[in-house]
Structures are given as structure tokens and as C-alpha cells.
Design a protein around this nucleic acid. Structure first.
Lengths: 355, 355
DNA sequence: CTGAAAGCGCTAACAC
DNA sequence: GTGTTAGCGCTTTCAG
């Protein structure tokens, strides 16, 4: 055969991907050395490291994640309660990317009702998963947790507000997020701040309300009972809550909704009755879901780094499963992710508060 | 440890997954036979087939997709122009699931601007992809297509309205979708139907407008120029268009927006000026994005089966890459996906049209 | 029609 | 520090 820059098999088919062996040959070392450089890079001489790195650059090598995962064969699953949720994109993005890096397979099953989620879990268990990611409200369901542990599968609570001992969790400080947002509103001169509760079945709901209450209390502001409206995290429930809150007199100068869907509804209702946002009324949401930057004006909200959280969840669970398989002591760490306030155009100074 | 039903290795670590060999042993055949049964099932005796199937059932075997893909080592990429898009979730769901089934790796790079998309493409090429999925407007960009083919990567146009010869494509009949929706509105008694255009840079935009125009023409209705408002697929642009369209007198009894984000904006504006949807005005969208079932009333829209389309795209591209590698003649099929009208609560009979 | 052997790309485990 | 060996679960030859 003649010379060629790419490897080629007998069929004449191009094998366009560079393997670890190609790099090894190019660098004049064994593939094992290359492997070591790619990974820990412990116990490798500076010299080797340099050579190998150069060859990787030269050949434009990138490891085959599939082959890597074949070794450990860890399968992880996730149940997603709200398949049409706008968070799903970010969640999948983070989870899948990390599953490559962590060398494991990642499966997902939708399921809007608990019944469907249970069926999805069934399928995941049959597929041989070693761990499963449970977002709210699934992560707070006793039935769910029970079934998971009965199957010998490691659970991970995703974005729960009430982590449990013995269950790994990605924890988010809903309390602090709501507290910060409320303080932000107070700092802008708002005193009468309405609040729309989240779905009581989701653990973050209560924590968000507590944060709101604490911030107001801390500022010495007494909360009028009528400032609090019930909600279910849906746009529709936000509509109802908005009508209630905007009917109060004197009207609150700001409304803080427990999520963005409801905040968007408030914005629609407010503008519907001729109010200018944020000049007449400020509106804040929670989550930084896509809708927050879709509606106009764009919503000031608390950003949950869903993609990063999903990536962390996958990495943690993969470690846990490997650890458990090699007989290690089970640890179930709780990792806390930071929430950040992102200010957009739906909030501003309170009317008459001076600039 | 107490009793356990699962296999276990010397370390005491559970190997929870059943392999093809376990099945083979259980059925008293070679693993090759099992493999054949799982796949084509060609050249296998009925007898074997039965035995193997039974064992698979009994052991609850499911093949390890990772191992399967290791053989062919096909890497596919996708560029996603709108990472915060609500379609992303469905897209990823479909693509990733199929990538497992098709035995290939799937990588995705975000990129809102063409510049960023080009960088993402660069990374994908470096990662050694054999094919790439391009949604609009990327699939209609000459620069993009040029760079892709220069790298020897097979492109696939996703949901384009103007497929090209020699480039595989998932085609969607935007014309027919818009035509059907317009007919639907006409059938409900509407005569004055406003239309909001999509982003002119996206190929589906023109086709949707053509479908709208054709349906009206077919019903012998003359389109008033003022019924057509420009839009950019964004909520904000929908707001502007809605104000324009709702200011016309006599006011259209229905407004058909080129996507759901804009339709949602129309709904907000309409309700804002005291109109009841759909009693006073009907509103229709396109895409069936999550927002369509988020807002209230929920939007009548044209559903694009994004997840299925993504799955088809991955399957097709994987085949293409394998085919090309084994020196096959390149075919670039165009697959047409069906659009369906989903009627929800934002449309109804035209006012005064009788029930 | 069925099975045995080889190997996909990578990395533990063990030499040297 | 570095290389060798073996093997992850599956499928593609190639013999029978």
C-alpha cells in the first residue's frame, strides 16, 4: 500500500479517527504512557509528558469515550418529571456531556405523573442502571426512594430543598435565593412586595417562601397576609395569582413569583391592565428558565445552573456506583450549587422611591 | 453479605449487568447466536430463536450499547443555534436515544451566532466527527456547508425548508403546515386572518407564508397587505406585530403567527386590550414548543415532531457515515416528516359566524 | 445455519 | 517511570 496520512483498512475505508495507538507510535512510546498522560498524569516524566502532549496536538487526537466507558460499564438513569419543561434542554446538555467525560452510559425516561415515573424507573432498572437521578418532586417521594433502594440502585436527589442523610444530593439554597431576591427588591425601594407560592408538593417551594419572609422580616417590614398568593408553578396558576395580587389596594409595587412561568404570567396580566413593567410594577421570577429571556421585558430572576448541576450529578453518581462496586464504604455527599441573581428589565426602583 | 441473586466477582463487587455471554450460557448456545437473534435474526433456526429469546426474557438482558458502538466508532455532531430554545430538550432527547440505538457517539456544540457556530464546528471536527446535524439557519449557510465538506464531514440539514441535492435532509413541509392551519381557521368561519412572518434568515419562514397565502387564495379571499406583519420568531417581535395587527380596523378575527413564541405574544397583547381568546380573536402558532402548552389559553399550533426528527437524523447520518467509510456510493436521502395540527383553546369560531 | 477466533479503543494490574 | 498483558461486551470475519 502507498503512503497515506490517515490509517486505512483493507477495504480502503478511511478510519478518520486517531486512536491512542496512533499517538503512541507518533511519540515513540507505549499506548499506556499516552493513557497516563491523558488521565491523572501521575508517575510520568516531564519529558514523556511533553512528547506525548505534542503528538496529541499534532495528530489532533481525542479519546474515544465509548471505549473508555466499556471498561467500567456504569449505567446511570434519570427520571424527568416534566418532559416539556424548558429546563430539560439544559439538564440533558449537562448530563450527557458529563456522561461522556465520566465514562458511563446515561439513560433517561420521561414521566409526568408519579405513576409514569414509576414505570420509567422500572425500565431503567431493567436496563441495569447502577444509579438514578431524581429531580423534584420525585426525590421527595417515599415510594420512589423505596423502589430505588429495593432494586439496589443508588439514588441522587437533584435540586432538592430537603436533602436526606444517606442519599446523595445536589442541593440548592432556595432559601438564600429567595432571600437575596427579596433583599434586592427592598434595596430598590420596594416595601409592599407580593409573593406567589410554588407547588406545595415540591420541596423548594417552602424554602423559597421562607427566604422571602425572612428578608422582609429582616428589613422590619410586616407582611400583609393578602400579599401571599397560592401557585402551582404553572403559567395558568400565575395568571390567577396575578389577578389576586394586582387587585389589592394599595397595590404591591413588586411581585416575586416562585418561578419564571408564573412571573411571566404576572407580567402579562400587569401589562394587560395598562401597567408598565418595571415602571409601575417590578416582577421577579426564579430559575432562569428560557421563558425568562423570552418574554418582554426580560425577567429578573434567580439563575439555577441546571447544566452544571446535571453534570455534577452524573459525575458524583458515577463515582458512587464505582465505589460501591469495588466494595467501598458508601458515602452520599451533598453538593451545594450556587444560585445567582440575574438582573434584567422586569425590575426597577419602586414608584416614588426616588432614583 | 447475605444472599443475593446477582452475579458477583472476586472483589465482592456486584456486576449487575447481564451480558450476552450470560444469555448464551443460559440458552446453551454460543454468544454469536445470541447476537444474531438480537440483530437481524437472519440465518437462525426457529428453534434457536425461541430458546435465545426465552433466555433473554428470563435474564432480563439488555445489550450494552457502549460495547456495540465500540466496533464502528462513528462520531456524530450537532450544532445548536439556540441553546436556550425550548426545542432543545426534545431535540436532545431524540438524538441521544437514537445515538444509543445506532451505536454511535453524539456530540453537541452550542452557538447562537454564526461565528460561534463556526467555532463549535471547529471543535466537532477536531473531535473527529463523521457527520454533523445542522438546524436552520445553519443548514442554509454556504460558509457552514463549505467548511463542513472541506473537512470531509457529512452534513445533514435538519428541518430545512429548502433541501439541497447531495445533502441529506430531514424535510418538513412548512408550506402544508401553514396551509392546513389557515384552512382550519377559514373552516371556522374566519375571513380576515392576520399573519406574522418568521425570521427571513430561516428558510421555513417563506414557505410558511406561502402556505398561508395559498390557503386564502384557494378560498377566494383577498389578502389585505396590512394583514401581514414582519416578525423575527422572537416574543418581542411578536409583541410589535400584535400591536400592529390588532390596531387594524376592521380587526382580523384570527392571527396566525409563524411560531409559538410570537403567538404567545399576540395572546398577551390581545388579552391586554380586553379581548377574550378565542371568543373575540383566534390565535394560532407553529412548532408546538413548550410555550404553546404553557400559556393560557393553550395554543392551537402545528406540531413538529422534533424528538422523532432528531432520532431519524441521527439514524440516517450514522448509516451514511458507515456507508461512506466502507466505500459505498454516497446517497443523501431526504426524509419528510409529518406535521400535525393540534387544536387547543386559542382558536374557535369566528365572532358572528354562527356555531 | 452455527461456532471459534480476533479485535474495536482503552485502561487496570502487573511486570520490568 | 514505563511497557506488557489481558480483557471490558459485542460483532465481524471465517471455518465448519
Amino acid at each position: 500500500m502507498a503512503e497515506r496520512s490517515e490509517a486505512e483498512n483493507g477495504n480502503g475505508a478511511k478510519r478518520s479517527v486517531v486512536t491512542i495507538h496512533d499517538v503512541a507510535r507518533h511519540a515513540g512510546v507505549s499506548s499506556m504512557t499516552v493513557s497516563r498522560v491523558i488521565n491523572g498524569a501521575k508517575y510520568v516524566s516531564k519529558e514523556m509528558q511533553r512528547k506525548v502532549t505534542a503528538s496529541i496536538e499534532a495528530l489532533n487526537y481525542s479519546p474515544n469515550l465509548t471505549a473508555r466507558s466499556l471498561k467500567s460499564d456504569v449505567r446511570l438513569g434519570a427520571l424527568y418529571s416534566n418532559p416539556s419543561s424548558s429546563n430539560l434542554g439544559a439538564f440533558l446538555m449537562g448530563a450527557f456531556r458529563q456522561s461522556g467525560a465520566s465514562g458511563c452510559q446515561f439513560l433517561i425516561e420521561p414521566g409526568v405523573t408519579e405513576e409514569e415515573a414509576l414505570e420509567g424507573l422500572e425500565r431503567l432498572i431493567e436496563a441495569g442502571i447502577g444509579g438514578v437521578i431524581l429531580p423534584p418532586p420525585l426525590c421527595d417521594s417515599a415510594r420512589m426512594l423505596e423502589k430505588v433502594s429495593a432494586a439496589g440502585v443508588l439514588p441522587l436527589s437533584f435540586a432538592t430543598a430537603i436533602p436526606r442523610d444517606g442519599v446523595a444530593a445536589i442541593v440548592v439554597d432556595d432559601y438564600k435565593g429567595a432571600f437575596d431576591m427579596t433583599r434586592h427588591l427592598i434595596a430598590a425601594g420596594h416595601r409592599a412586595i407580593g409573593f406567589i407560592q410554588g407547588d406545595p408538593k415540591h420541596s423548594p417551594s417552602q424554602r423559597r417562601e421562607q427566604g422571602y419572609r425572612a428578608a422582609l422580616a429582616g428589613a422590619g417590614i410586616r407582611i400583609e397576609p393578602e400579599w401571599i398568593a397560592p401557585g402551582l408553578f404553572t403559567y395558568k396558576s400565575g395568571l390567577d395569582a396575578a389577578r389576586q395580587l394586582l387587585g389589592i389596594s394599595p397595590r404591591p409595587t413588586a411581585i416575586f413569583a416562585s418561578n419564571d412561568d408564573m412571573a411571566a404570567a404576572v407580567s402579562a396580566v400587569a401589562q394587560g391592565i395598562g401597567l408598565s413593567v418595571p415602571r409601575d410594577i417590578s416582577i421577579a421570577g426564579f430559575d432562569d428558565a428560557p421563558v425568562a429571556s423570552t418574554v418582554w421585558p426580560e425577567l429578573t430572576t434567580i439563575r439555577q445552573p441546571i447544566a452544571e448541576m446535571a453534570a455534577t450529578a452524573v459525575a458524583m453518581l458515577a463515582d458512587q456506583v464505582r465505589n460501591a462496586r469495588s466494595g467501598g464504604t458508601p458515602k452520599a455527599p451533598h453538593v451545594r450549587e450556587m444560585l445567582t441573581l440575574v438582573e434584567r428589565n422586569s425590575t426597577g426602583p419602586a414608584p416614588g422611591a426616588g432614583e
